[in-house]
Design a protein around this nucleic acid. Structure first.
Lengths: 187, 187
DNA sequence: CCTTCCATGTAACTTGTTACATGATTTG
DNA sequence: CAAATCATGTAACAAGTTACATGGAAGG
């Protein structure tokens, strides 16, 4: 489906960047909540996009020697990107989740181990949620729809509601485990 | 990480199955909410598990000619599975989501297209939620923790809360779009 | 000077999808 | 008897991760 291709075009459509900059967007920024890529995947993809004439680059010298390639999107690239963006694609198949797969089999665990695993997971998701909420504090208001920051705000709030749902699910599960445990030991 | 390996072991730990049966579990059942695999991935994996002596099979004749291989888990396989199941693995990196990636770039769309795409997505997620809720009706009560059906109930309720969160996010987003639109056109 | 970050790439491998290939059994 | 389902496999490709490989720039 070449999603990485369009993700890169989308970033370059905002402003010219180096491969390294793209890597940071995919790893340190809010966008990373819903899309990531390592540099080992980015550099070969940039080469492909050059071949397809969707991007061009300009060499810049940083310091004395170091050359960096600042890529920008071409008209052809913009067209391809906008075409992808406006397409009405069917919903994606549900994403995989190893922890839930494991819990699917959790009847094979003893009660203590199950609770331990659930608790560890809950802690991690709560930390993550706290971190996301802290990021959200940067916004006094919801940014205007047409602004660049709106995308960031959107993925951030999406990530927050996803975490909240996960935490809710974990808490319900834990409460049920504890409840069953109490009932059994009172026999 | 060999997750498919352990997913198959987990299923065979419940009861002996053919490759075809495993495919059905990964595609038609509740488990498919959090793990899937095509038969083209399953058959080669079964071969690997045989090599590793974690499973064995027995040939059964169905009708006159058709041979099917019913696989079962070995003691070694059970051990490997339980070992995997009880391991406390760190939280996974956040799963990718193409639609949210697209919406991250949605400031490049005109208001009508954006609303159209959001609406289409919302419809699909509502359908999916309705379908999941219908499945949940099978359960009068939460199944006991140690039962086989508990896993099914768990992934089902996880999928429901995930869909609810997504729908909430979409509805908020749509409301904000409509609101901004009204404010702009009243100028 | 030393550590962290900037910067770019390739190679080997794992995972997963789509397509190719075949044929038997069951159900209406 | 035709269609849906059962049943098992392989091949080619796409996507993604880990490891290998190199070296400059900036800041403390």
């Amino acid at each position: 489906m070449r999603t990485l291709k369009y993700a890169i075009l989308g970033l370059l459509n905002k402003k010219p960047m180096t491969g390294y900059d793209i890597g940071k967007e995919f790893n340190n920024k809010d966008l990373a909540e819903f899309w990531t890529a390592k540099h080992s995947q980015i550099y070969p993809e940039l080469k492909k996009l050059l071949d397809e004439e969707l991007i061009v680059y300009q060499i810049e010298i940083s310091g004395e020697i170091l050359e960096k390639k600042r890529y920008s999107i071409t008209e052809k690239g913009k067209e391809a990107f906008l075409n992808w963006l406006k397409k009405d694609e069917p919903m994606e198949p549900t994403p995989k989740d190893i922890f839930r797969l494991r819990m699917y089999f959790s009847n094979n665990l003893d009660g203590a181990t199950r609770l331990y695993l659930l608790d560890r997971q809950l802690i991690q998701h709560r930390d993550r949620l706290a971190h996301l909420n802290k990021n959200k504090e940067r916004y006094d208001d919801i940014p205007p729809l047409e602004s660049e920051e709106f995308g960031d705000y959107l993925v951030l709030s999406g990530a927050i509601s996803r975490e909240e749902a996960t935490i809710q699910w974990l808490e319900n599960f834990i409460a049920y485990c504890k409840n069953q445990d109490r009932n059994l030991s009172s026999l």
